[in-house]
Simulated scan of single mutants.
Amino acid sequence: MTTARDLAIVALGAAPDRPVERGDLSLVLAGAELFDLVEAGALVLDGEHIVPSAQAPTGDRLLDEAAGKLVRQEPYESVSDWLWRRGRDLSSTYIEDFERVGLTARPRGRHVPLRTSRSELVDSAARCHAEQRWTAGEPVLTALGAAAGLGDEPAPDTQALTDETTSTVLAAVGDAVMELEAVRRRREIEDAAFDNVWRGY
Rank of each mutant, 00 (worst) to 15 (best):
G149T: 06
T162E: 12
D6A: 14
Q132D: 03
L7Q: 04
P107C: 01
H111D: 15
A147Q: 07
E181Y: 06
T162S: 10
T93F: 08
T165M: 13
G109M: 01
A15V: 05
Q55I: 08
L29P: 15
H129Y: 13
T93D: 14
G31P: 03
E131S: 12
P154R: 12
A176T: 08
I95T: 10
L37H: 02
P19E: 01
E179N: 09
Q55D: 08
L141E: 03
R106L: 15
F194E: 14
E65Y: 07
A105M: 03
R110I: 02
H129A: 15
R88F: 15
W84I: 04
G145A: 12
E131G: 09
L141S: 08
R199W: 11
L121M: 04
V20S: 03
A56Y: 03
L34T: 13
T2I: 10
V71Q: 01
E164L: 12
G200S: 13
A105C: 02
D191I: 02
R5Q: 13
E39L: 08
A171P: 00
E190L: 13
K69N: 09
A148N: 00
V71M: 00
A126M: 12
R186F: 11
V173Q: 01
L37Y: 03
R106D: 14
A42F: 02
E74Q: 15
C128N: 12
E181K: 15
V177L: 11
R187P: 01
E33R: 13
I9N: 07
E65W: 05
E39N: 04
R88K: 13
G102W: 02
G68C: 06
M178T: 10
G68S: 07
L62G: 10
T2A: 13
E188R: 14
R61H: 11
F35R: 06
I9L: 15
L45P: 10
E138G: 08
G87E: 12
V122I: 06
G13P: 09
V28H: 03
W198H: 07
T162L: 07
A130D: 02
G47L: 13
T165Y: 13
L144H: 04
T135C: 09
V38P: 05
Y201W: 09
P113Y: 02
E39Y: 06
Q73V: 07
P139R: 02
G109R: 02
R133L: 14
L180P: 01
W84G: 05
T3Q: 08
T116S: 15
F98V: 11
D60T: 00
G109P: 14
A192V: 06
G102P: 05
L180D: 05
A30E: 02
E77K: 05
D152G: 00
L27F: 11
R61C: 07
R88V: 11
A54Y: 13
G149M: 08
T142V: 00
A130N: 03
V38T: 12
